[in-house]
């Protein structure tokens, strides 16, 4: 009796499936599973290989499996892996902080103030963005020699931070400006009447509202140095100064030093700081704070 009733009632919000639609649905599921497989399979191989003690230079699929921390040990003992981690984190944190600081000012200024050359400079920033960083290498060298002549303690790592932050500031200024544009200027006015100066308006009112956006910008600027292997390998001379990506790259870029499982192990460890930061910022990333500011 009850079963019959259940069968007779169609409770889904969507119209019932026709046979053709059932087939299409099945196909899309198959495609999705294939896609997941394509992504997860190599990842699984990386995880497996990094713990496989029976592999040496190359990652081979199949063969014997012997669980060990051999490759991790190799990284820490034979290679300056810890140094790379520290280098990368220092550079990443410095980049993120510098980017946040500057983008806060530029984004706010471009959104709230009308000044001469506002449009032109915005356009210029956008156009410069289209030139790949790599092309700038020659300019970077010249710049570095100029700056280090003026400031003796200016290291190559600091220079790397400047390059990363410079790129980040340009592109993120747009994003933050757009976000601040969507906040009613009456909030600024209200804050001004309540006793805020220009800087306080940003710090006490605008910044808390754009926090999700700032968290994303921080995250992206932080991740950047983890992913880029090319610039550090050109700008930093000493392998001791290398960042993770560049350091790990030395493990696979020529056959004499080839050590693929260790590369996989390093890759795994690289993900850790990013994941930690992501978890730490999760609360900030939740947006929707701005709703309810002005009439609903």
């Amino acid at each position: 009796m009850i079963k019959q009733k259940k069968k007779g009632l169609y409770l889904s919000d969507r119209p019932p499936l026709t046979p053709l639609k059932t087939i299409l649905l099945a196909i899309s599921y198959i495609l999705l599973f294939a896609y997941v497989f394509v992504i997860l399979w190599p990842l699984a191989q990386i995880v497996l290989s990094s713990f496989n003690g029976s592999q040496s230079q190359y990652i081979r699929i199949g063969g014997t499996y012997q669980f060990s921390f051999k490759h991790f040990k190799f990284l820490f003992e034979e290679k300056p892996f810890l140094k790379w981690v520290i280098n990368t984190i220092v550079i990443a944190v410095a980049t993120a902080l510098l980017t946040l600081l500057f983008v806060s000012f530029t984004g706010y200024a471009y959104s709230r103030y009308r000044f001469k050359g506002r449009k032109a400079s915005l356009m210029a920033i956008m156009l410069i963005q289209t030139i790949p960083t790599f092309v700038g290498i020659a300019a970077f060298y010249t710049l570095h020699s100029i700056i280090s002549a003026a400031i003796p303690g200016f290291s190559r790592q600091m220079f790397l931070v400047l390059i990363y932050a410079g790129g980040g500031i340009a592109s993120n200024t747009f994003i933050l400006k757009g976000y601040i544009d969507s906040i009613s200027t009456e909030l600024d006015d209200a804050a001004r009447i309540d006793g805020c100066g220009n800087f306080q308006v940003y710090r006490l009112i605008i910044m808390p509202i754009v926090r999700p956006m700032l968290a994303i910008i921080a995250l992206w600027s932080f991740i950047g140095p983890f992913l880029d292997y090319m610039l550090p390998s050109i700008i930093l001379g000493d392998p001791e100064q290398y960042t993770l990506a560049t350091g790990l790259y030395t493990l696979i870029n020529d056959s004499r030093n080839m050590h693929q499982p260790a590369f996989a192990a390093g890759g795994l460890l690289t993900a850790l700081p990013i994941v930690i930061l992501f978890i730490a910022l999760q609360k900030q990333l939740v947006s929707g704070l701005a709703s309810g500011a002005v009439k609903g």
């Binding site: 009456e186 209200a190 001004r192 009447i193 500011a293 002005v294």
Partner: peptide
């Protein structure tokens, strides 16, 4: 004279409440 030094209070057409503060904090802010 800057608005903050004029000893004025203002109610805006769109209310302009600070979305990240509670009602209490909004009222206490000034």
């Amino acid at each position: 004279v800057e608005p903050k030094d004029r000893d004025i209070a203002m109610v805006f057409q769109s209310y302009a409440l600070y979305p990240h503060m509670t009602v209490y904090e909004n009222m206490a802010f000034s």
